[in-house]
Design a protein around this nucleic acid. Sequence first.
DNA 1: AGAGTGTCGCTTTTT
DNA 2: GCGACACTCT
Length: 794
Amino acid sequence: METLRHVSRPFDLTARQWEAIDHLEGPLLVLAGPGSGKTRVITRRIARMVERGVDPRSILAITFTNKAAGEMQSRVAELLPGRRIWVSTFHKFCARVLRGRAEAVGLAPGFSIYDTADQRGLVRDVLAELEFDPVHYPTGRLLARIGRAKNDLVTAEAFGRSFKERVGDQWQAVTARVYTRYQQRLKQANAVDFDDLLLWVVELLEEHEEIRDQLSERYRYVLVDEYQDTNLAQYRIVQALAAKHRNLCVTGDPDQSIYGWRGARIDNILRFERDFPEATVVRLEENFRSTQSILEVADRLIAHNVLRKAKSLTTGNAAGRPVEVVRLANEQHEARWIAEQIAAAVAANRRYSDFAVFYRVNALTRELEQAFRRRGVPYQVAAGAAFYDRAEIKDMLAYLRLVHNPGDRAAFLRVVNAPPRGIGKVTQQRLLRWADAAGLGVLEAAARADECPELKSRPARLLQAFAAMIEEFSAAARGSVEELLALVLHRTAYGEDWIDSESEQDRQRLANVQELLTAAHRFDEEYSAETAFDGSLDDPARSPGGPLEAFLESVSLASETDDIDESAGAVTLMTLHAAKGLEFPVVFLVGLEEGLLPHERSMKSEDQFREIEEERRLLFVGITRAKEELYLTETDVRDFRGRRQKTIPSPFRAELTAELTDLAREAASYGVSAGYSVEDESQDVPGDEHLPPEESDREEPEAATPHGVAQGPGARFPGLKTGADLLAGKEGGADVPRSFAVGAIVRHPRYGLGTVISLGGYSRNRSVTVLFEEDGRTQTFVVTQCPLQPVGML
DNA sequence: AGAGTGTCGCTTTTT
DNA sequence: GCGACACTCT
């Protein structure tokens, strides 16, 4: 096996890096500080393993995101031309493993992977079935609880049991019942959600010895990146795979664990040496990214965390410019100051793409974007309006899903009447009820709709026609995905109405569908180019289910977040979470304030100690993204959720040992006179005058609240009530208040001022038709149900 | 069948 | 103060 006997350390690697790279057998923990060349170490190590005779097919490298997987794959490919390593995400790996053995857990191989929208729809159905009020028990909340349980490997049965054992609250009781039914429905539809992919594989590995042996034999070398982000299910999968051969290499940095809230267990990496007492531990503490100043700030900050493996960061880089904490009057000034710094630096020597602005919550982008637009600073916001989330794309994919998995209820409901073909809600419900009673899959039920006693002949015929059409698609399902899609588009006449449409939205939709066809085309080409099929069940290159299954899997497990373009020539705006793994020459970190960073939720939490440590790590991640310059900002006052509040400095600020530059009271070009007051706010700042009026945020009089005191909605116009308020005060609702006579001036919170031009109905059903000043539009409201406020008479 | 409205609640996000 | 989501009327 040892083909290259004694290889001395290449000049471009440190001794520590080489130690990790040259390690072959047995458990290895690589604690990699920020900027320590971790990816490089992993890829070089894989290459080195292959050089030393390890069969590439026995190596399994797992990451969290597709982006990371792709990056790693291509970097290994550079080092090993012509060889192929399977780098996969946890979910993709699990999907592949589960495909071949679905029966073992009671699924069929063609199972669908439900996305968030499908999950929501399913929970909504379950709530209706169990007769729980969806307003009281919002789908999102329930799914969050179910998801949390799944992350902790708590099955529906276990959830119900633990609830009975303790004294549970109503919420838990409801969750237990919804969870149980939800799982039954998934199975019935031959579907899994994202979490199930992991859960089922845990079950496969832990309950089926032969499967565990087979897989751990196949994957003799397992590598897991970002190990600090693994949740319990992922941990158990890794343990099971590596239990026998113990060739497990995990890399990560506990100080960059920022996903505790979605089930990640920092403990997994902290206890690695207990799980594998014979482990080799390599600490990569030398940083090649940041200046000394930046690194020192990061190091001091993170030293305040208690639940931590001690690690000290060093760098041979220059000291660089000192890190600054800059205090501004408010968020407008903050944004403007940043925009100006960037504009000035670009005028001198920087490029826009050298800059990034990080924030804790997405809501903080607004002011930044506005300031950048005003200054003419190009920017991109890293937040994906995902391609695959678009309705027309989901519809198309739902057709494909239904073709592949005739039991896929979510897909069926999505497309059975899209485009409209006269199969309404009632028909759908009757069919589903009958299908459930008869134990039929959705599509089969549709095909036999004539047997359903509740359905009249026309709806039954329509359903059968639909089923026949899907059947026809199935015949084309083993070939090219693009052709199948084209057939679906043609036969369903989907999107035909958009072709001659004037509306921009329709054009966009059409373009999206076109884009999907292109994506399918690309996929077909790649799929047929794959030749390395080794015939085994888990061959990463080939899905046993053919091209359609592979295509569906790749789109279900892909998200279009990979759209941060480094070469875009623009400043990048993103959350601190999104910043992990990236680096920029100059970083601005906005809103270093209590409530924002640490976020108020973390301080209010039961587990606040742990959560505040995670917030500190989040700040640590942000700081260590900066290569040359770092500025953190805080403000005197900040508007948030409509409230204007004096801020409290972040407790982290004192831990930073950075210079404080107070610009809050300075009358600089972005600033106004000292001391805060609303009047100052409304004063125009140079550069604002030329702006169109809509750029000014203050079109509504009530938006400018005197003295910054937040007021409740009722107090906005003292003495004024809405029509609904007025009627609510009177038993039985007497008659319409006189203020709603024809000619009355009324205000609507959305449409502004208007005049009542006619009245209709009586008492509770009284309606008014209002002509609005702004756009001249007419609108009819039921007085008792609208927020119209009488303002006066004509 | 689709739009419009009222209600709620409000980190972070991948798969 | 705004947006998402669920219900209800046109």
